[in-house]
Amino acid sequence: MRFLKLKETVPFMSWRYIAMGISTLVVLASLTSIFTKGMNWGLDFTGGTKVEVGFDEPVDLDKLRKVFEATQFSDAVPQLFGSSKEVVIRLAPRDNIKSEELGNQLIQVIKEGMQQNVEMRRIEFVGPSVGEELRDNGILAMLVALMCILMYVSMRFEWRFALGSVGALAHDVIITVGMFSFLGLEVDLTVLAAVLAVIGYSLNDTIVVSDRIRENFRKIRKGESQEIIDISLTQTLNRTMITSLTTILVLMALFFVGGELIHGFATALLFGVFIGTYSSIYIASSMALMLGISKEDLIPEVVEKEGADLEP
């Protein structure tokens, strides 16, 4: 079985200006959303308290809100979580009392107010300074990862490829984060991990493509850079699609049966895989092409000893 039986080379690169245009627009839109709308930072990064409780019967959220209004938890925001019997309640960070005890107190309040059996499922508390630190560390991790990868790829390939692949990575990360910002999805630590995994995945794709381009530059002695890149992309197209498909399959499994806790993770990776697949074709290769990649850059240099003739 084969997905695509391509006899002809697909002229990927002739559409590169359109692709680049679209990408630029999407990246700009993402950046706009990130900087104007901002991110819906989860508890991990903002600090505060989150309590998840389970009831025996479906919950009346309005009643629960009323229960909170009468207490010090008037700012508590209850939300159904997964099913009608499970509720997650968020509290903003506060400092009048020992904030690490809020979670337990909140459960007490629910127990008394709802006159129902309440099961504590989860309490999360993050101090404000820790939240900021986690966010800073996360961003640092992302930058360090990009730098290290840039170094490795420059070493193994060539600086144009390295720039191309890092450009593709930045493209993927910005758009994935932008999607989260635009859709207002909550960003927690697992999403951050997923974004880093997207870097890994997208890179995987880009490297495979770059590898093939390098190989073809060496093998096919004739032809323009653009043509060789097209040939390489066509040759790897089946592989690109299959790997994306298998990855998407497992991510779907995670998304649908993995539970609420890794929903964000699966969502970010699903976005990322789609974008990563596209970017390895269009961003990385077209950037390398625009930077003027040519055969000479990739064919091992034949070392000519200068002045060798002069010796007797």
């Binding site: 986690l134 560390n137 996360g138 640092l140 991790a141 360090v144 990862a145 290290c148 990868i149 490795y152 790829v153 193994r156 630590l189 697992t190 951050l192 991990a193 880093l196 995994a197 870097i199 890994g200 995945y201 890179l203 995987n204 490297i207 495979v208 590898d211 093939r212």
Partner: peptide, 28 residues
Amino acid sequence: STIADANITTFIAAVILFAIGSGPVKGF
């Protein structure tokens, strides 16, 4: 060589995640 390159770069990302990340990120 393609597989090696692709895996080494992903590995770099994983190691950085481990070194800098905390809690759930480390487990991943």
